[in-house]
Nucleic acid binder design. Sequence first.
DNA 1: AGTCGCCATGAAAACGTTTACGTTCCGCGC
DNA 2: GCGCGGAACGTAAACGTTTTCATGGCGACT
Lengths: 335, 335
Amino acid sequence: MSITIKDVAKMANVSVASVSRALNGHTGVTAETQQRIREVAARLRYVPHSAARSLITRRTQTIGALLPDLHDAFFSELIRGIDLAARARGLHLLLSSSHGDADEAATALRAMQGRVDGLLVMSPHADASFLEDNLPTLPTVLMNTQVKGDRFTSFDVDNYGGAQAMVHHLVDSGRKRIVFIAGPEANHDVQERERGYRDALAAHSLRTTAMVLAGDFTEESGYRAAKKALALSPRPDAVFAANDMMALGCLTAFAEAGIAVPGDIAIAGFDDIPLARYVTPGLTTVRVRIADLGSSALDKLAAMIEAGGEVQNSSHILSTEVVVRSSSVAGSAAR
Amino acid sequence: MSITIKDVAKMANVSVASVSRALNGHTGVTAETQQRIREVAARLRYVPHSAARSLITRRTQTIGALLPDLHDAFFSELIRGIDLAARARGLHLLLSSSHGDADEAATALRAMQGRVDGLLVMSPHADASFLEDNLPTLPTVLMNTQVKGDRFTSFDVDNYGGAQAMVHHLVDSGRKRIVFIAGPEANHDVQERERGYRDALAAHSLRTTAMVLAGDFTEESGYRAAKKALALSPRPDAVFAANDMMALGCLTAFAEAGIAVPGDIAIAGFDDIPLARYVTPGLTTVRVRIADLGSSALDKLAAMIEAGGEVQNSSHILSTEVVVRSSSVAGSAAR
DNA sequence: AGTCGCCATGAAAACGTTTACGTTCCGCGC
DNA sequence: GCGCGGAACGTAAACGTTTTCATGGCGACT
């Protein structure tokens, strides 16, 4: 039904080879015939069939992204970053998100075979052996996915450094009893943030005051943790939540309890989701440049593909930044 | 390099045809050999090359989504909805977003040829003739994209009805001078929202009080419009912004000017972005179920593909819902 | 003027599948 | 005992490209 290169060739009285050459701007076809072929192709609305093309060129101009089911803002930012970099290179994006379990992820991974030139993977379920077992033999870049050694190229945000910096900020502004609200246990990001929290406390000789409450990244769990924090004695003068949503839950809990923020207690989060600057008081948090993470990972992947896969693996850390708002320091900039 | 069906065939001492049959669960191969082939395939980590497969089957199991550059929350929700429905059907998602101009959109559209089984299009630049000119001959569903007649199947949110309902709510709670802050002029959603606003005023015999200020969907433009609204005489007792971000700008402007919300003036937005319930006061707005829009559109598209393209075009309207928060009615539920 | 070489072009192979069509073999009914 | 049907399996065509290789023509150089 769809019109093919043969139709164009026939109509222009040339061979399919010449059509291919003309349309791809290759040499070996006179300007005049190229012109003619181009005209015919346009008139016929010819569009090359990409499956056929990739079959022979071994290139799809597409990269696959395997993502977990993420909280909205994070997800959206990441995609935006990836998409931006991909479009700049004329690459397409095959999206595969929300993989509940390893089996599902494995299926998705295999389905990418022959469909993409490279893979961007962010998967909480992935460990090295899972990846080795299921990854098609494709250039791959890992994002925020824990894996030891140099078997893969990876990009990670500086969870450890960001958490440290936040604790330093809190201590510097006079806080002494800082409680940390953790996230899902198996989550590598959370582990690193907690490690940064503990090490920073130690650096201030406050190791003994370390206090960690459970959470699961939801606002609700932040709310519950905040209630627990208030019951502690002596009462903490700051809570540092492993992500912003939980910090928002704290905000609500404290407001209900009539506790002044930041007067009685300071609140800090992690991620700098758009919401953070809109709540009152504005939420002090660690900014993670998610879009950059996506862009950088894609750029690196593109380079690997370009190089034909024979490049040294490398790992990269994306810096974070403490954003101080009113939830930790009275009278600080509203934005 | 990659191992193909031939390798499996050789290793299992059968023909490629049998391998294909065994792996696809077709008849004509004994259980015993099927078993053997499956084992060999697993051992060799054979994964069928999808480009080759789609070349012959004319199916890619992939649907393409052409999206504009959207404000974050909207974009993310839409993708989530689409992805959800796609995964339920085992379909892949080829994403193509952020198309600044029609040329870019056209290129993206053509690049989809042979890559996808169907197309989901949301494009502000698209009018009927653009689509006819550039759309590959593929099943297509339009989302929030204005196009007259029944040449396409489309899904739209009920901008008109939502705006009407919001105006009714404002009038019912005692507001009389309601100003509307418009969005980008060419935007069809905005036009419909404004139409709903005007018609609802007319229904309350308040037609003469209609007052429209310019805006462009950004928070900044909402802020500016709010300033203008305050300068009006008599001063309005409500502003209805064409989207939530502009409503937030109003919130800021009124706070700075010391105007009480909702005491002196009520504020209403449109979209119900996540932020809306977090700001103080909570923002009264029109909820648009974006994820549903995506899911429904994809479901319909899948049905069209299933049916082989020979289905009647149809258009669908997704209902909206007024969400009352404190910005329009004092003491209303915080959430 | 003849030969050499380059350039435009065409024919055909190749990519990795699926599937229509043959072929072989076995069992069964007459 | 012979033929027939069906099941299991193999052969090869087909999908729509790109690319290698062959071919022919024409200009330039000796």
